[in-house]
Computed example of a mutant assay.
Amino acid sequence: MNYTINPGVFELNPRLHFGILIGKGLNNSVSTSLDVDSMRNAENHVRQIIKEEELRSLPIIQEYRNTMEKAGINPNKYPASTEAMLKRVIKGNSLPTINALVDLCNVVSLENQISLGGHDLRDIHQDLSVCFSKGTERFLPFGAKEYETVEEGELVFTSGDIVQTRKWIWRQSELGKMTLDTKDVFFQLVGFEDNEGSSLIRALDSLEKLIKGRFGGTCQRYIVKQGNQNIEF
C-alpha cells in the first residue's frame, strides 16, 4: 500500500513533515487507572505551561493555522483537532476516556502539542493520500451512518475516494476509528521539522515506545517531507 503527499501540499508550506508509524499486532484494552492518570497528568501539564490567550501564538499552532488558511480552510471555524483539544483542556475540561490506545495517543498529542491521528487499517482498502479532493469523494462523519459528499478542492486525507480526515487535520471519519478490537493502525503525525528534539521526533519516539511496550506490537517508522513524498508499506 502507498502513502503519498500531493506536491501541491508542500506549496502551501514547504516545511511540512509527516511522521508515519505503522503499528501491527497491537493488543488494545480498556484504560487502566495508570492510563487515566497519564492523561490527567498531561492535561495538568498543558494547563501549567499554556494560557488560553497564548494558544494561537504557539509556533506549531500558528503553522497549522497558516497552512489551513493557505488551503482555503478557516481555522476559526475548522480548527486543527489538536488546537481544539488543547483549548478544551486549558479551559479546565477533562478528556473522556475511550480506550487505552485512544487515551494514550491523546497523551502524546497533549505532551507535544502535535497533530496525531490513528486509523484502523482494517477499514482502509486503498492507497492513502494527503491531497486536494476531486469532488467525487465521500466522508462518513464520526458517529454517523450516512456518507456526506466533499466539495472539489478541499485539502483531505483519503483512502481512494473515501475521506479519512476532512479539512486537512480537522475531523476524522467514523471509518478507521480505534476500538478495543483494533490490531493494526496507521498513525499520522504532522510537524514542521524532524531534527532531534523536535516535537515531531519526540512524539514519534513516545508513540513507538507505546506501540512496542504498552501494546506489544511491532512498528515501521517513516518521515515524509518535500523531496520524499511517497512511501510504500
Rank of each mutant, 00 (worst) to 15 (best):
H119F: 15
D120L: 01
L121S: 13
R122N: 14
R122V: 13
D123E: 13
I124E: 01
I124K: 04
H125P: 00
H125N: 14
Q126S: 11
D127I: 01
S129P: 14
V130C: 08
F132W: 00
K134N: 13
E137V: 00
F139H: 04
F139N: 05
F139Y: 15
F139M: 06
L140I: 08
L140A: 10
F142L: 11
G143W: 04
K145C: 11
K145G: 13
E146A: 10
Y147E: 11
E148I: 14
T149R: 13
V150L: 12
V150T: 08
V150N: 08
E151H: 09
E152I: 04
E152R: 11
E152S: 05
E154G: 00
V156K: 02
V156S: 04
F157A: 05
S159H: 00
G160N: 03
D161P: 01
V163P: 00
Q164C: 15
T165M: 14
T165V: 11
R166L: 10
R166H: 05
W168S: 09
R171K: 10
S173V: 00
L175M: 12
K177G: 01
M178I: 14
T179V: 08
D181G: 07
D181V: 02
K183Q: 15
K183S: 09
D184T: 07
V185N: 02
V185Y: 01
F186G: 02
F186V: 08
F186I: 05
F187S: 11
F187A: 09
Q188A: 13
Q188D: 10
F192K: 03
F192V: 06
D194L: 06
D194K: 14
N195V: 15
E196L: 08
G197Y: 03
S198N: 05
S198T: 07
I201L: 05
A203P: 00
A203R: 08
A203I: 06
L204I: 12
S206Y: 10
S206T: 12
L207Q: 09
L210M: 10
L210I: 09
